[in-house]
Design a protein around this nucleic acid. Structure first.
Lengths: 170, 170
DNA sequence: ACGCCAGTTGAGACTGAGTCGCAATCGCAT
DNA sequence: ATGCGATTGCGACTCAGTCTCAACTGGCGT
């Protein structure tokens, strides 16, 4: 729980391009590194507002852009609308399992998938700069609840093919 | 180029829930299956408008929802904002390589990745219902252009680690 | 062929997320 | 302490998508 490392990265990032570490930026940074969850921009706004800090929505977005750009925060398209942000630990990377029921986000990392991705890129002469890989469905905790609910409904929603099919969505 | 199969699926889908095949829905369907690219909702609106057909934005979205729900069209989060739609051929599935330069979308399918995904889900007791997997970067055609442009700039943007790193973004 | 009515449409108001312009303010190098 | 470029907050704005509702229509029943 020592965000010092990230703070100095951020500081350096700002310095390098003649930007300033204002009290708003510092406050946002602190709030962000006080937890370790995924969060939305407006969530931060509310949290800071309730903590007496005043900060505008525009500044939240502007600062978030800086943090993403500096590499210590990641911007992810999760859920149906808007972005979510997450702390990024240097050099680490992960993808997401997202529960449609409770919204829980599970991070996973599968080296074999990563290297297969590289192979795919090679195949197409594609230079990958970033990627996004998310699986949506029902998490372990929600499965019992959902399946009992389904039992109540008609079986009409059953997928024809029988076998579990994974279709693209987002 | 015979969309008859899909049309009958759509027809059946509508019938099953007492919905009607209106001229607007038919027109949208036709326009959609006249090509095979990824497209945005507003794009369809424009295309139909220029083809003398009048149709409202709301109807476009409503019909697109039906098509997605019936399984013959897929909704994908590509690019920075909004959705894109794409024809789905029955049983087929693919993921995307997206070029940041020209916007080109390359479809790929890697069975090994799919099965690794299943393994990841098992590991977490997660029931996957859909997934999204996109790599963003520079396509073969754009690479020469981009690298020469980069050469002009300072080398300051070089990634420290040296090795190609793939970071999450969307 | 006709009528009926649930389903459908278009227009425009609305929403939510994010961006922009600008005058007032602030960090910080000197 | 000073100066000035960077930054902020505000509110207006955009953009994609949704909603409401009165007017319209597809297609079943006869």
């Amino acid at each position: 729980m020592k965000p010092h490392r990230e703070l100095s990265i951020f500081r350096k990032y700002l310095e390098k391009r003649g930007l300033k570490l204002t009290s708003e930026r510092q406050a946002l940074f602190d709030e962000l590194f006080a937890r370790h969850e995924h969060f939305e921009a407006d969530e931060l706004l509310v949290r800071l507002r309730t903590k007496h800090k005043k900060i505008s929505r525009a500044t939240i977005y502007r600062t978030l852009d800086l943090l993403v750009d500096s590499g210590i925060v990641g911007r992810v398209r999760i859920g149906e609308s808007g972005y979510r942000y997450e702390r990024l630990r240097a050099g680490e990377h992960h993808d997401h399992l997202i529960c449609n029921e409770c919204g829980r986000v599970i991070e996973f990392f599968e080296p074999a998938i990563e290297s297969l991705q590289d192979q795919v890129c090679e195949r197409y002469g594609f230079l990958a700069l970033s990627h996004s890989h998310q699986l949506r469905g029902i998490c372990r905790q929600c499965r019992p609840r959902v399946s009992s609910r389904e039992a109540g409904r008609a079986a009409s929603a059953a997928i024809p093919g029988g076998k579990l099919r994974i279709l693209p969505t987002a």
